[in-house]
Design a binder for these strands. Structure first.
Lengths: 163, 163
DNA sequence: CATTTTATGTCAGTCTTGTTGACATTCCAA
DNA sequence: TTGGAATGTCAACAAGACTGACATAAAATG
């Protein structure tokens, strides 16, 4: 750690670099959620509804418990959101045949339609950011994101990847 | 856009790639806030307090309006947070000499101490993620983040960079 | 110089979405 | 078969967003 080369290699770990990463995450997350937020507002939904729609779409037939472990909120909190989505017929619920305690969740046609609208808006911004930054930057972006996750979330993330 | 080479170049813009980016942001942000959240809980503060402490530390003497434009919340919302921080003597307030409507904000010694604690925890995780991913990945990470921000936030971000 | 308009910050009340606690139902194991 | 564990629901509460009304200070206008 004393010669010039290794010191140069570690320049990306300076306090200033870390601070930029921290502030970058903060500002970027605002951009990341801005477009869906505008759409959700029109329907009087919030980010919590978006997250539920997204992951029910990704894992159709999932039960409440599984969704909880992905979303990282309490089941009581998720329950309120699910209740309104079911009332408004964006999500349908099927009681498990094998285990009748479980409720399996699916998007209805209108649910799919709203989810599509939201993910299109969000993807559009992501695509533009990717395009500006280029393929190598995108690869690095995903590496750092993955390394920043809690181990359990990293597992959840990878499971979604392969399925 | 018809030959193999350009098709290959655009593989990083597939729906699957974009989806991974979206879910990556979601999971990574949870990791990003997890450590400070644990510390804040002990003092009965929340993320809003952390954000205020962070940017008052970064821009000592800033006024409420400037802080608002960085944080992207309403002044009423920020006000509640500032009030408790001032009550608890983590933040001190000095009425502007030139414009006596303005309140200039500073961290007190205890404010600096808590901010240090929070930023140390957050930087630690960021450093570990950077270290795992390596310098090239970090450069890409920051490029994508910056491209994802709203233009106004990009400006705010860059201002913090040079100062 | 007086008065109106604009800007900064505060107080009060509401809504979303987190939280914990109590509970009903179902399954499984002793 | 009975007691415990798991799944999900209902109720009450807290943090932190929001809008609206307001006080004070500065700036602009007559």
């Amino acid at each position: 750690m004393q010669n010039d080369t290794s010191r140069e290699n570690l320049l990306f770990l300076t306090d200033e670099q870390l601070r930029q990463g921290i502030e970058g995450m903060f500002f970027a997350y605002r951009g990341f959620t801005a477009d869906p937020d505008r759409i959700l507002e029109k329907y009087n939904y919030g980010r919590a509804h978006h997250r539920a729609l997204h992951f029910i779409n990704r894992v159709p037939g999932t039960n409440v418990n599984n969704l909880l472990s992905i979303l990282g909120v309490t089941k009581q909190s998720l329950n309120r959101v699910l209740r309104t989505l079911i009332e408004h017929e964006l999500v349908s619920l099927r009681i498990g045949t094998k285990d009748r305690r479980e409720r399996h969740l699916y998007l209805t046609e209108s649910g799919k339609s709203l989810e599509k609208q939201l993910s299109t808006a969000q993807s559009h911004r992501m695509r533009e950011a990717y395009r500006q930054a280029g393929p190598d930057a995108v690869a690095g972006f995903k590496q750092v994101l993955e390394a920043m996750m809690d181990p359990k979330l990293q597992v959840a993330y990878k499971k979604l990847r392969v399925s």
